[in-house]
């Protein structure tokens, strides 16, 4: 078993995903299954194989670093679940 509950708790925090305690056991089993299945890749000899970072042969296109369009602040905030005085809001972060 590659994954235990403690590891799943840890990665759930890294991913900022709340996992209810009662789901943890089942989830750990599922994830462990998947990780166990992908471990078959260990059989492949990849010494001196370059990792693929881009599938295309094209050099990424660079555009001028300039403002191309402006959108009004209300437009940006329109979908915010909570906005105040033209800002996004979050719980207090500085004591």
């Amino acid at each position: 078993m590659a994954l235990d509950r403690e590891t799943v708790r840890k990665i759930a925090f890294l991913a900022r995903l709340k996992v209810p305690e009662e789901e943890l056991a089942a989830l750990t089993g599922e994830l462990d299954n998947i990780i166990g299945w992908v471990e078959q890749l260990g059989k492949v000899d990849t010494k001196s194989v370059e990792p693929m970072t881009s599938v295309g042969k094209f050099k990424p296109y660079m555009r001028e670093d300039a403002v191309s369009e402006r959108r009004p602040r209300e437009d940006i905030l329109a979908n915010a679940p909570d906005a105040e005085d033209g800002f996004f809001t979050v719980p207090k972060v500085i004591e």
């Binding site: 992908v38 260990g42 990849t46 194989v49 370059e50 693929m52």
Partner: peptide, 15 residues
């Protein structure tokens, strides 16, 4: 390295 880089290397081989 064990998972992500390995997978990217095998992706190269598949290509």
């Amino acid at each position: 390295d064990a998972y992500y880089v390995k997978a990217q290397q095998i992706r190269t081989l598949i290509g």
